[in-house]
Design a binder for these strands. Structure first.
Length: 293
DNA sequence: CTTACACCCTGCTCGC
DNA sequence: TGCGAGCAGGGTGTAA
């Protein structure tokens, strides 16, 4: 489930349970996910206190009291759930969720508070890494990561600067994590619809000849921020993660205007177009051919 | 430098 | 009902 809003939702759900607690026990149930776990993963984590839980792009970053950072990526199918403990229900985190196949519970953290936090990932495209905090920014995982779309750095001028001269389609440019970090397939489709921009349009067309932003660049920057903020407020989108209880998690999927809505009427008032599905660089793009240009 | 594509892996849905 | 094909929210490595 994880694009920026989903990862941020998970972060907010885990934060009250994890921050301030020690990792009293770690149950690592296989040697690898997408990549091998770090050497001595269990030994290096046991007894560490979590000082903060942050997010960069689609990565969760747990600051530890030994100046290392536990970096966690959810891949396509990763999720965390919280078992028992004193914590209250938290959005974005599965509590006592029986819909998860425990065969895919790959890591379980037992906290000093008694709470257990379990990482489940059927496809195993996620991974965990331990990196010295001082080396984080220059680490291969992060040195080329682009700007945060919810930070102050994203505006029309930034988009124009990043996209100037690019022949690549807007869809590909927005998915490129080295330019803007955290957007994924859903929110790129949704943002482009809100900006009435075709996913096939060349990214460079959002910059003027002098490199400055066009009106469309300002609009796109604004709607990217808007759709991400709305999705975070909704607890992200839950597509294939069926929840038994706790309606607090992820209802932004009900607000999709184009994603996975091929054949539906365009949601734009008075448009009358039909949502189309095309494939761009191997991934589905949903858009209205009538109002997105 | 681009851009395109296969691939990693499991599970679900759809059409026959 | 069974079965294979195709597809899925991500990222990387390779090739052209």
């Amino acid at each position: 489930m994880p694009e920026l809003p989903e990862v941020e939702t998970v972060r907010r759900g885990l934060e009250p349970a994890m921050v301030g607690a020690r990792l009293a026990g770690i149950d690592q149930r296989r040697p690898d996910l997408r990549f091998p776990f770090p050497e001595n993963f269990v030994e290096r984590l046991t007894g560490r206190r979590v000082e903060a839980l942050g997010r960069r792009a689609k990565y969760l970053l747990a600051d530890l009291d030994d100046a290392n950072v536990l970096v966690m990526h959810l891949g396509m199918s990763g999720s965390f759930r919280i078992i028992s403990g004193e914590d209250s229900a938290s959005p974005g985190v599965f509590h006592h969720d029986r819909s998860k196949n425990v065969a895919h519970d790959h890591v379980a953290f037992t906290l000093s508070t008694g709470t257990r936090i379990i990482y489940n990932d059927p496809r195993r495209f996620g991974f965990m890494e331990l990196i010295a905090r001082s080396a984080l920014a220059e680490h291969a995982l992060f040195k080329n990561v682009g700007i945060e779309p919810l930070g102050n750095a994203l505006d029309g001028a930034a988009l124009a600067r990043l996209f100037a001269g690019k022949a690549a389609p807007l869809k590909a440019a927005l998915l490129d994590q080295t330019l803007i970090a955290g957007l994924g397939n859903i929110y790129v489709c949704e943002a482009l619809h809100r900006a009435r921009l075709s996913p096939r349009r060349a990214a460079g067309t959002l910059a003027r000849k002098d490199g400055g932003p066009t009106e469309r660049a300002h609009l796109l920057a604004r709607v990217i921020r808007e759709v991400l903020e709305e999705a975070v407020a909704a607890g992200g989108s839950s597509l294939r993660d069926h929840r038994q209880t706790n309606g607090a998690l992820g209802y932004f999927q009900h607000n999709f205007r184009v994603y996975d809505r091929e054949g539906s009427a365009c949601a734009a008032p008075g448009c009358g177009g039909i949502v189309k599905r095309i494939v761009q660089s191997g991934r589905a793009s949903f858009f209205c051919g009538a109002c997105q240009r």
